[in-house]
Simulated assay, not measured.
Amino acid sequence: MSQETPSYGGQAVIEGVMFGGKHVNVTAVRRKNQEITFLEVPRSDKRWVMKLRKIPLLRGIVSLIDSSAKGSKHLNYSAESYAEDETEPEEYAKQKEKDKKKEEGWSLAMIFGVAVMGILSFLFGKVMFTLVPVFVEDFLFGNAFEGYVLHNLVEGAIKLILLLIYLFAISQTPVIKRLFQYHGAEHKVISAFEAGEELTVENVQKYSRLHYRCGSSFMMLTIVLGVVIYSVVPWDNLTQRVLQRIILLPVVMGVSFEVLKGTNAVRDIPVLKYLGYPGLWLQLLTTKEPKDEMVEVSIASFNRMRELDAAIEARGYTEANVSGGILDPAKG
């Protein structure tokens, strides 16, 4: 990828794909009538958040929390679209009316509370995934051998096994299987764009569904690097071990984010490219080969995001002119 090529990211949603641009995040969803609908949300990052995004180690934590909070809106949009398509029209209309009345009573504080809940849910999930393997390992092997480093290695193996079992189990459900197919479609579009290809379904389908710069790779890195980082600080009992995991969790996340960026930067170097392979192997579970119509949705989302970013750049970006109608084609 050339230095001039922007580095885009995205995520799969129910029956669709979200892509994040410089100024706007766009979700495209395939509806039951085969129409593709869009959710377009301007990015309004605070100055202090943008500054933190430039600081090594801190930028990874900020990016993960921020994307978790903002991504919930796009997931909700896709879930509501799916529910609308799967529910009887009269029944859905009644529910929408109830939801509308609730939304009309929302204050700024309530909206802020929802964002905070999204962040707390993310943090709770990370803490639970970090601590559960600690208790499992201590219960099974607490008195089996000496040496905290060896216990850390076994804990890492347990964490990986639990993750693989979880991903395999949820991938067997029809909705999640299709979600993973859209995940593959997202990766294919980014890879085709980075290669300078014209974004047609035929061109995009030629590319791998695996990508170095993926959240699945990040999960794998937190497991591997967690073993290394946790082994730097010794512990003598379960209480110390738990406290160490909680305190060092931000360090593990920050370092993993930097290593992920590094593996992506050296992916074209013959020997160093193998550093990113464990994350790619995990993506064999979190992505599936997409159908052509799924790739079409992913391309539509990506093109719409690029179109809006270009329009905003052309007019001179301010948060006011984005919210003032530049996202509406009829006004642009």
Rank of each mutant, 00 (worst) to 15 (best):
F112A: 14
R43D: 06
E91S: 14
G125T: 15
Q240G: 15
A109I: 06
N152I: 04
S44D: 13
V41M: 13
G20A: 11
R267G: 00
R304G: 00
E258V: 10
L150V: 15
A83F: 07
K46A: 14
G147H: 04
L57T: 03
P174T: 06
T318A: 03
G105P: 02
P234H: 06
S208L: 03
M110V: 12
E15A: 06
T286F: 07
L179F: 11
L179T: 07
I14W: 05
Y166P: 02
D292T: 07
L64A: 12
L64C: 09
Y182C: 04
C214P: 06
Q283C: 05
K206V: 09
E198W: 01
N321Q: 12
E86A: 15
V17E: 02
P174W: 09
V233D: 03
L260E: 01
K188G: 12
L167A: 03
I111A: 11
S191E: 11
G10V: 07
V259S: 01
R53Y: 05
Q172S: 13
L308K: 09
F129H: 03
Y212R: 10
L248H: 04
S81Y: 01
F193I: 09
P89N: 08
S121F: 06
L327T: 11
P290V: 11
P290W: 08
S107F: 03
L238G: 02
S68P: 01
M305D: 12
N143E: 14
V24Q: 08
Y230T: 01
Y77W: 10
S208F: 02
M1I: 05
V322W: 00
E198H: 03
N303I: 10
Y212L: 06
L108P: 01
H151S: 09
Y148K: 00
L249C: 04
G156D: 05
L39P: 01
L167R: 00
V266A: 04
I111Y: 06
V132I: 15
P133K: 08
V114I: 09
Y277R: 10
M117H: 02
G254Q: 13
T130H: 04
P42E: 11
S231G: 08
F112D: 10
P329G: 10
K70I: 15
E15H: 10
I111W: 02
A144P: 00
S7C: 08
V228H: 03
N303A: 14
F218S: 01
F218R: 00
L275S: 04
I326W: 07
D292E: 15
W106D: 06
R245L: 04
E293I: 07
V49A: 11
K96W: 00
K101W: 00
L108R: 13
D66S: 09
V175D: 13
V227E: 02
S298P: 07
K100W: 06
I170G: 04
F302P: 05
L64N: 05
T37E: 08
G254W: 13
